[in-house]
């Protein structure tokens, strides 16, 4: 089974995204911030191929997480999608430069998530 991770400090948001990904066939891991996510990726979540990550979180925000992950060769092939309330073009460009593959603005629908996953080539 393919593995995915949802990183968001909102428990409700994690639950919504995790349920969507689970229905699409993923085993889903969750983390409340970037630091927790890195720790989880080093352990139980080894082999994760898709990560949906919020921007604004305590401890380590989404942008820092993306930069840290992209600096680590082990996670080179992981597809990273930011899912955030940040909607400025400059922020999107920053996220792309940091290594994010896609970007979803909140609020979103299930169709929006699915369409973006198709763009990433991880959903038929």
């Amino acid at each position: 089974m393919l593995k995915a991770m949802v990183i968001d400090d909102s428990r409700a948001m994690r639950m919504i995204l995790a349920r969507t990904l689970a229905e699409l066939g993923y085993e889903v891991f969750q983390a409340a911030n970037g630091k927790e996510a890195i720790e989880t990726l080093e352990g139980a979540a080894e082999g994760v191929s898709l990560i949906l990550v919020d921007w604004n979180m305590p401890e380590m925000n989404g942008l820092s997480f993306v930069r840290k992950l992209r600096a680590d060769q082990r996670f080179h092939g992981v597809k990273l999608m930011m899912v955030t309330t940040e909607t400025q073009v400059e922020q999107m460009m920053t996220a792309l430069e940091a290594g994010a593959n896609e970007y979803v603005m909140k609020p979103f629908t299930r169709e929006i998530i699915e369409d973006k996953l198709r763009l990433l080539g991880v959903l038929q």
């Binding site: 909607t87 792309l96 603005m105 609020p107 629908t109 169709e111 763009l119």
Partner: peptide, 20 residues
């Protein structure tokens, strides 16, 4: 609308071809 550009449009195209 935001919900329209959120759907199906690669973010790389959004930042290149749209102004907010």
């Amino acid at each position: 609308l935001q919900i329209e550009v959120n759907r199906g449009l690669p973010v790389s195209y959004l930042v290149k071809y749209f102004n907010r």
